[in-house]
Design a protein around this nucleic acid. Sequence first.
DNA 1: TTGATTTGACCACA
DNA 2: TGTGGTCAAATCAA
Length: 324
Amino acid sequence: MARSMESVDGNGGGLVVTELSHIKELVRQLEVHLGGSHDLCRHLTTQIFSITERSISIITSSSLDAGAGGRKRPASPLSATPTSDVTDGPFKNAKKRKVMEKRKHQVRVSSGSAGGGAAENDGHSWRKYGQKEILGAKNPRGYYRCTHRHSQGCLATKQVQRTDEDPTLFDVIYHGDHTCVQRPTTAAAGQPEHNPEANGLLQSLAAGLTVKTEGLPALAADPQGRGAAAPFYLSSSTPASGCLAAAERSPFSTSENWGVSPATSDSNNHVAASYLPFEDAEWRGHNELQEVVSALVAASALPPLPAVDGFDEFLDLDIASFLA
DNA sequence: TTGATTTGACCACA
DNA sequence: TGTGGTCAAATCAA
């Protein structure tokens, strides 16, 4: 996460905080306009407001951490590889180490964050193919590949490892890009129909939700200029097919080695935050922002009643930690 | 029955 | 030669 921490420090983090503060103010205004007419909307705005505050807190604390030297954990050797270090394509031989594309994207996800974190709910469908004890690490590393590796030749893989310092945090390293068929997620089949009014609110919020990342190192270097105000793609439901995550088993749910699951609840399937715009390695480097946006999406995308309970549980925890 | 996970073994790289 | 990444058979779960 060192890279991500770097990505939000300094000017970039300040801009994000500014934007989130703006969102917070808009939500406040929205709540005022809603008055007492609609409990659900008020409930949602309250939650969005709280999570936005939390997100600001995360970013500001991250900036401080980065300034103080960031993580103590030594960077993964993989992390040291430039993102442009693309080698000779697909696996050529069995058991050959990393001849595939070495683009990577390291994120840190929290088991307590909304949506359970990118470890298992990043909008793609993953299949675990291995687990290894890593020297010097307390926790094993899980190896995942795209479910559509064989059907569509998708070479995307990721490694998930619980951090030593905080068992609730996971380091997720992505390798390669998804080449399988992906599509934006809308209201997916099999998912509970969300409250139309709430969705409308969400969509309007999402439509206006852009996070300025200008000034961030990687994005500033983006020759295509996507970084300045590229909108995050938001989804609020589980995709029906393709590479996007179906209602799958959590990669953590059956392995006792992982201890607590970062997100094993079925409710997480309702709040899949696709990271399709982050297919680009540079974009993926800004997972901190993804987490923030995911939190916002989670706050808003949950079905009115059943999932709200689960969300309240999450919210209680996070507010407590936020206020602490 | 089918697909996912577990786990020991193999292999390449540093 | 040690470590990490992957394979594949066995096992589990839906």
